[in-house]
Design a protein around this nucleic acid. Sequence first.
DNA 1: AGAAAACTTGACTAAATGGTCAAATTGCAG
DNA 2: CTGCAATTTGACCATTTAGTCAAGTTTTCT
Lengths: 211, 211
Amino acid sequence: MLGHGGSEPRRTRIQAAKRASIVKAALEVFSEAGYSAATLERIAEAAGISKASLLYYFPGKEAVYVAVLEDTLAFWLEPLAALDPAGEPLEEIGRYVTTKLEMSRKRPAASRLFANEILAGAPAIGGFLKGPLKELVDKEAAVISGWIAEGRLAPVDPRHLIMMIWAVTQHYADFDPQVQAVLGREAAKRRFAAARETLLAVLLEGLRPRG
Amino acid sequence: MLGHGGSEPRRTRIQAAKRASIVKAALEVFSEAGYSAATLERIAEAAGISKASLLYYFPGKEAVYVAVLEDTLAFWLEPLAALDPAGEPLEEIGRYVTTKLEMSRKRPAASRLFANEILAGAPAIGGFLKGPLKELVDKEAAVISGWIAEGRLAPVDPRHLIMMIWAVTQHYADFDPQVQAVLGREAAKRRFAAARETLLAVLLEGLRPRG
DNA sequence: AGAAAACTTGACTAAATGGTCAAATTGCAG
DNA sequence: CTGCAATTTGACCATTTAGTCAAGTTTTCT
């Protein structure tokens, strides 16, 4: 569809740049509206082109959506793979929580994109969840299990612990309107600082190996 | 539109029953598809009537949606108001977590309905969040603050603690496809039991007053 | 029974929206 | 400059879907 054999000349780079700008615009629209409420018209407008032009670069709405998901997936998983078995468990987990929370603050659209997709039954990334994601979680769960076996962490189900961390960190991006309503006038920065302190206090104390 | 002055005869009861059955059907559809992907046709079909008949009972799609939200709101908040200031803090919080988790298991559609609504920016319940919900949270936060002041609970931000509990419990309903993918072949009952054990272990240990 | 009110629904309309297409424009290689 | 390929887009088409309506059917009341 795109490839012409051989040396991949300028054109390709232009196309890639254009597609990237469409994907960027589409991330905003899909994450705010969800798949069905998002319109190609809005995405095209956000990207500064016409709808017909957008459809010159992508075969259809679903293709744009998949491209956005793919573009965001790798980035979103990155921190999970960062647990170092040789490190101090509470420190590693604390760093993981902080990183994930930071991502919720800096890239809320990415978080909401996945929230929408999974809420809708994960029609587009179901395979990814059962494959690569599960494998990654299994691997990290093994690291946590190792720490528990060494007595360096309280004995809890590693997979549920991982999901617990996902839940509390992503909550701040996904359910922002509720968070804002409940916290009232607190400044945004203070909000994330307070969240970090609370999460770390409860999680790290709760996971400290029992004497 | 509906009211005829005076003694509210049989008709009203029939109407109420019909509206209730529509609301019940609509909860399923809205919670699975979100507002825009849900169609009146599907809701009517789920309620066993024609679309035109549905529109005889409700003036439009949005009215059905609002009715579903109102019908679900009170029920969903119930457990929050159950924190007893006179009780043992860790016990009260443990009971709250268990209740909320139980609701996620028994009424996942209700949880997903709110998740969708808030993800979409809470267009329909924004006022509720900033009003009644915030007040309820403030009240419960005061109870928690009291416990902390008495040294019966570790010092954490009460509002963030409440949101932390919401996040981890609702996660199991809202992001079920991801939970299923990550946990693999575990049976559903075992899944919730394991979740409860992990959440209670971490939260209660993490909130125990520091010696 | 008979009239009136409540209810039901098939058929329709209007608007939104994903996708197509042919004609115009732009960029570039020879 | 010339011509070809890539790009852009306005106009258009087809489908979906919220909402209307008139013509029925059922229920209730006297």
